[in-house]
Design a binder for these strands. Sequence first.
RNA 1: UCCUCAGUAGCUCAAUGGUAGAGCAUCCGGCUGUUAACCGGAGGGUUGUAGGUUCGAGUCCUACCUGAGGAGCCA
Length: 609
Amino acid sequence: MRSHVRRRQAERDGCRPRRSCDAVPGVPSGQPGQSGSNQLTVSRSECSPPRSRSPQRRASGRPGLARKCGGSHAGPQVSARNRRRSQQGPSKVMPRDVRPRCSLSRADGPARRVALSQRRYGPGARRRSPAVNEVARSCKLVSMAKREIAELLGGAVGVGTEVAVRGWVRTRRDSKAGLSFLQINDGSCFASLQVVADGTLPNYVQEVQHLGSGCAVTVRGELVESLGRGQSVEIRATEIAVEGWVDDPDTYPISPKRHSFEFLREVAHLRPRTNTFGAVARVRNCLAQAVHRFFDDSGYLWIHTPIITASDTEGAGELFRVSTLDLARLPRDADGAPDFSDDFFGREAFLTVSGQLNVEAYCLALSKVYTFGPTFRAENSNTSRHLAEFWMIEPETAFADLSDNADLAEALLKHLFRTVLEERADDMEFFAQRIHPEAIRRLQAVVDQPFERMTYAEAVRALQNAKTKFAFEVSWGSDLQSEHERYLTEEYVRRPVVVTNYPKGIKPFYMRLDDGGETVAAMDVLAPGIGEIVGGSQREERLDVLDIRLAECGIDPEPYGWYRDLRRYGTVPHAGFGLGLERTISYVTGMANVRDVIPFPRTPGSADF
RNA sequence: UCCUCAGUAGCUCAAUGGUAGAGCAUCCGGCUGUUAACCGGAGGGUUGUAGGUUCGAGUCCUACCUGAGGAGCCA
């Protein structure tokens, strides 16, 4: 939402303008972490509104529900206009952004349909395992009849079965013949489920005909073959219970129409309700799970490296300070500088910029390890490829050299891409249709071919021989500019490329010095459209060389005593790299901005939500 | 941090210095096993903020705020 709109809304609300979501009209002001229904973990049965609903009860705003759910916005604030609506006819909308995109031919045989559906609707389409069902029943979270939409569309439930689904209305289309069609989405897969609501339902006129985008419902009915085109099965509803109304459809930001990503960033708490951000969330989860599966299957241990670090490590960017000192009365030493000896940790502390140094310690005892978690950079970077808080995957392998390291990076990336193509085919189909036409094809190409590998020296030669005019001249010893990386990966080899053995002057102290003494055993994996997606190296395992490199880089060795110890006691060659999760998701989905592949992006000047 | 561009209805955008417009969304009416539904109507605006130039500013000038793209830094 634009600033002036926020301001106007804020003024109407009688508060100071803020750059946050709580000025969004019609949206609850409670934020996660504050008291409000968002935070409650009560089960649905505790939170459900009464079954029988008269217009009077709706008009009352259901005070009982609001009380139980801990926030006034839990129930609808039914206005005079809404009451008027309940006596009048419906409207019809069917936006481009929410129409179903996966359909199954009704001519397909049942077996083929199930197989096809499981591929299209993801792992959620698989029948739940007996163990999961048992746990679910014992927790009273679901009854046997309640199903995820992915299961229903995936063929896990036979036609003719009585089922219940819960989710949010995407659209409603009415027929004056006394029939309404609801598209229901529960996030379990890309597709929405069509619900046929007959005019004989007891709440048809008073409630069903007023459902719109964003309303939460529980639908019970029979799974039937669809009479219409566009879906193979649908639910013929016998009961539609409205769990949560949309207070004011006029100002609900996720109206059924196309929205710009810039606008949706301003309503980050509601954007997961769109096709795009639901798909991104499922792909992100798929990739994260695949990371753990890959390393677990390969014998790597997941090491939980610390979020708070004491050392200003390796100059990997600016750090966020973690402190409990009173900023208004900062203790100072004799020189007038802030005195951190009184601080919580008795010294300066920061949010980690990388788990690498810590994970090296575990590598030199457990051989194969990785860390995967959030990292933080206080750089004032304003680009589509940078976040102040992002997630990084950092494996570290003992008894491994640079070549082994590149092999591991290639195997990991191929595993991730293969997995997402298999398990999130429905979402990938959407990305290929709407976000990036090459999304599927280029992933398949990466999976099918070996990565191109070249040394920095070869890359420089290729750039010098290129016909392309560069803004920055290429010469040995200077770092590759964005335009150079783009040329290499987008024009020269046209797929991911591994560049190795960079000059030591442009790389950090911990990278292993090559035999010539001019280059280090560094490697970057460059991806088309993204640039550097992986950065890694063989580490310097020789203490004497490490000390020289620390001195050359002008780094005080004192805070690195523990890191030097690793070279004093049983040192071995080892190597590792960092893979940025958001850049990976960006490459996989074709989403151009990493701010749109993390749920709540943190960037300079922006930490709303 | 630097460079460039942009802020007008809920959203996406028009509007020679001279009365503020469209499409979509919302609401209402009509029509239909619908599926980007369709047809008709209605409501909706301190043109980002503060100054300035002018008889007159959405439009020109200055500063600031916000956003985007690119660069640097990096994952």
